[in-house]
Design a protein around this nucleic acid. Sequence first.
DNA 1: TTGTAGGCGTTATCAA
DNA 2: TTGATAACGCCTACAA
Lengths: 348, 348
Amino acid sequence: MTTKPPPMKAPSSRPDGVVTLEQVAEQAGVSPSTVSRILNGTAAVSQAKKDAVQAAIRDLGFRPNPVARGLAGGRTLSVGVVTQIISSPFYGEALLGIERELERAGYVPMFVSGNWHEDDERKAIETLLSRRVDGVIVLAGRLSDAELTKVADSLPMVVVGRQLEGPQLFSFSFDNRLGGRLATQHLIEQGHRRIAFIAGDLIHEDAVERQNGYFDALAAAGIAVDPNLIVQSDFTEAGGMLAVSRLLERDGRFTALFASNDQMAIGACLGLHRRNLRVPDDVSLVGFDDLIMARYAMPPLTTVRQSVYEIGVGAATAMLELLRGGKPKVQLPEPALVARESTRRMTR
Amino acid sequence: MTTKPPPMKAPSSRPDGVVTLEQVAEQAGVSPSTVSRILNGTAAVSQAKKDAVQAAIRDLGFRPNPVARGLAGGRTLSVGVVTQIISSPFYGEALLGIERELERAGYVPMFVSGNWHEDDERKAIETLLSRRVDGVIVLAGRLSDAELTKVADSLPMVVVGRQLEGPQLFSFSFDNRLGGRLATQHLIEQGHRRIAFIAGDLIHEDAVERQNGYFDALAAAGIAVDPNLIVQSDFTEAGGMLAVSRLLERDGRFTALFASNDQMAIGACLGLHRRNLRVPDDVSLVGFDDLIMARYAMPPLTTVRQSVYEIGVGAATAMLELLRGGKPKVQLPEPALVARESTRRMTR
DNA sequence: TTGTAGGCGTTATCAA
DNA sequence: TTGATAACGCCTACAA
């Protein structure tokens, strides 16, 4: 042994099989910058070197290190996603859409929960920024428009469920109002006149819009709004169950119930069951979202289809476009009523 | 203007308000290394400097950059989580537990889906490694024990649902076998003898164990296993529904059904409904997991409680302990039967 | 078109 | 106990 141990660097492979850009450069006989340029398409490179480098990349199994990229001011190939509660079936489906779509472009999502809490949400975004994500997708939430817009100054941002404008900011919403109208209309067409409504948390535009749709349909049918038939809740199963109790404690009788999301509808169903009211025999029930759970509810739940998965895909697609420097345009399917077995024509 | 523009560096705050460790050092009148040492507790530092640095950190609102840390070989304060399908209600609850617990220690989870697919899972882990996560939590999955163990050579790892050993490797399982026994026993106690069983994907230890529990209970009661009453499925609602069809196509009659998770039970319920079989009047039904959906199923589902949320918390706790260099020990609650309305005493 | 040099924000290694 | 100094792996002027 004549060589001293320390500089014993085997150029082509380190202990754990991590290959660096520098090694690729060496193997291809070019400079690191050239490799970088080829990787990022930053500048024109001669075809010969391009080939050599690509061969080297393949041979060595090189994969750029996102962490180093992030530090160097480049991209991290990761996009932050602010959800509210990661365990909710609603967000679950959206996240799946986001993950799948992002993956196609080599991006990885970083999910953080806002817990329907302004501070948490703020912290979530900070976390994301400190992790150098390339962009942020915000699903609903409580942060003010101003605050979100400000973040978008330094980062591409996609916001679902609001209307915001900005150079690096894209937002889109599902047509919740139309959805709310369809649901209510369906009930009216079945002959119902006394239709109760469980609103979601009215801090959300979504919730408000669904309620507006409810009003629209009633108005169109010449049915007066009865405040006794409206309760506000929180989009959870437990909330839906509670809402039904409150509704039943009042004097107003109703033959149909429109819960502004599936989770509350499911909860309401149990609440009705507890009072010995049958769905749809005693009360017709409509939900909103068409989550998987709606299909498997008992009875299967009539609801308004908004493909949450598609919304996730849409958000991711928009983000990728933004990242590409383009102008996203997302075409969401129109809301549609899915009639199942929880609603029935009024016969009495 | 006598100074030339380029070096115009305002030491205390850059355009976007990002403060670096170096700035903290400067403000506190110490070297960057000292700041780093204080941050990481790497070495002893005089109290005076410690105070000064901490004051500077507070004043400047400094937050260490995880990306830079990751590059420098330090920690990224992030742990990777390999789930199977992020949209599943089961994983949702687990992820929530993981996220909450990790957050308490300043860690952020990175979720990636394995999609019940070996290749995806392998890729997921690679992604995680290239992102320099400090550790990996694996929830079930198809990767071989050997492969997982190998990954654990270079990284702390927690595996849920298997038995693996290793210096940086910790694994724990819920007592699925006992759970399966409890479920079946409950049915037997209600007088049922012909108890059908829907197994999960038997690639999972979990699924196998639940089935073993089913066998255990039958054996203890002196009931012979009837292969006609057993079908294998895939842990999804759709799978549960399909399983019921297959069961009913066979000649064997049954008065009770044990589905080895809640999702399949819910699906089975719909399947029975389609054949005009009532739960629990015609068939008593038991699930497994006690997800939220069980509570709100119609009728509310009798099931075996395993707190998926707790499992998530446990996995995270174990990981933090591993990261701390300690030996984790997770105490999971015993499985327990939660009797609700989907089962009833056989009267015929 | 290509290469060199410097920097991104931390941590780790050595001296002092 | 402290502080230079050199990585970490990549990107991006700048120069050639």
